Simulated scan of single mutants.
Amino acid sequence: MSRRPARTRPTRAQTRERILDGALEAFAERGFHGATQEDICERVGLSRGAYNSSFRSKDELFFALYDRVIERLQSRLEEATACALSMPGSTADNFLKAFIASYPFDRDWYLLQAEFGLYALRHPAMASHYAERQGRILAIIEGALADILREDARIAARDLPCIARLILAVHEGSMFQGLLEPGKVASGELLDFLVDLMLADAGDVIRRDRDGSPSQT
């Protein structure tokens, strides 16, 4: 008589990941306030008890999603930065490509982040948690910039925090514009232009031909 294979149950970590994946889909489709616990449980095939043992509120669920985004960004950007430093050519250009590849456009996440950001602005307790997460992302970007630009005398170390904020603002702003006007803004186009402005002569950047090459003046 053959033995039945042992029945295995998902680990707590696996259950959390399933809930996070389902929540991201539900929030993007129905909105943060529109999606319910039942919506999420139904999507991932879990009971409300399993959900409640992992998360106590939708706010906690959102910040768990944000933490996952930060962890993935840090891991990817560390690897990409090391690669950029070992590649020939402009380290700034290499960093830009590494950053875009490490923090790709994710429609579902952008919709949720934008909606929750407005909610947080109206609720100071939420705003402090949101700002703390954004601060972690800025620190990751600033650290990568310090590695990439440490030998570039055109960039002062004191400017790195502002540059990190500018890069994040341009990246997230281009996501919004890409959703609002599909096809009008290519992925990474605005960041590419920003890096040109920071590291090249501003006049040369403004006088570029349509194909991106500097015009002859």
Rank of each mutant, 00 (worst) to 15 (best):
L180G: 00
A146R: 13
L112C: 15
K97W: 03
G183A: 07
L77N: 04
T8I: 13
A80H: 04
A156H: 07
D147F: 00
A120S: 15
G173L: 13
E151H: 07
F176P: 00
R136N: 02
L118Q: 08
G183W: 07
A120W: 02
M87F: 02
Q37L: 15
R122P: 01
R68P: 00
I100G: 02
R18I: 06
P5Y: 03
S47L: 10
F193K: 09
Y66W: 10
E29P: 00
V170P: 03
F62L: 15
L166T: 15
Y66V: 07
R68M: 08
E181R: 11
F176D: 09
Y66I: 04
F62E: 09
G212C: 08
Y51N: 06
I137W: 00
G45D: 12
S86K: 11
D192F: 08
F32W: 14
R4W: 04
P5A: 11
L191K: 12
Q14F: 06
H123N: 09
E172V: 15
T8P: 01
A6E: 15
H33Q: 12
A114E: 15
E151P: 00
I40K: 08
W109D: 06
F105R: 12
D209Y: 03
R76N: 14
K58F: 07
S90C: 13
M126W: 05
E172I: 14
T15E: 12
S102P: 05
H123Y: 02
L73C: 02
R136L: 08
L179H: 09
F63G: 06
L85W: 04
A50D: 09
R133K: 09
L145H: 01
A114Q: 14
S75I: 01
V69F: 06
M198R: 04
D211P: 02
L61E: 12
L160Y: 02
I100Q: 12
D196A: 08
E17R: 13
A146S: 09
F116A: 08
L166M: 14
H33S: 12
R136T: 06
A26V: 11
I155G: 01
K58N: 07
A169E: 11
L149W: 03
L194P: 03
R165T: 03
A23K: 10
A23N: 10
S102R: 05
G22L: 08
Q177V: 12
S90F: 09
T217K: 11
D108H: 14
R165W: 02
K184N: 06
L24Q: 15
E142K: 09
D21G: 00
M198E: 02
W109T: 10
L138D: 05
F95K: 07
I206A: 13
E78D: 10
E42G: 07
S54T: 14
G203M: 01
E151M: 03
R4K: 13
H33L: 11
A186N: 08
S102L: 06
P88F: 06
R12G: 01
G178P: 05
L138V: 03
L194E: 13
E25P: 01
A144Y: 01
Y103T: 06
D93C: 06
G89S: 07
E60S: 05
G188K: 12
E38S: 13
R72W: 02
L191A: 11
M126Q: 09
A125Q: 11
V185C: 07
A114F: 14
G203W: 04
L160T: 04
R48D: 09
E79W: 02
A13I: 06
G31I: 10
I19V: 14
A114L: 13
D67R: 09
F116V: 15
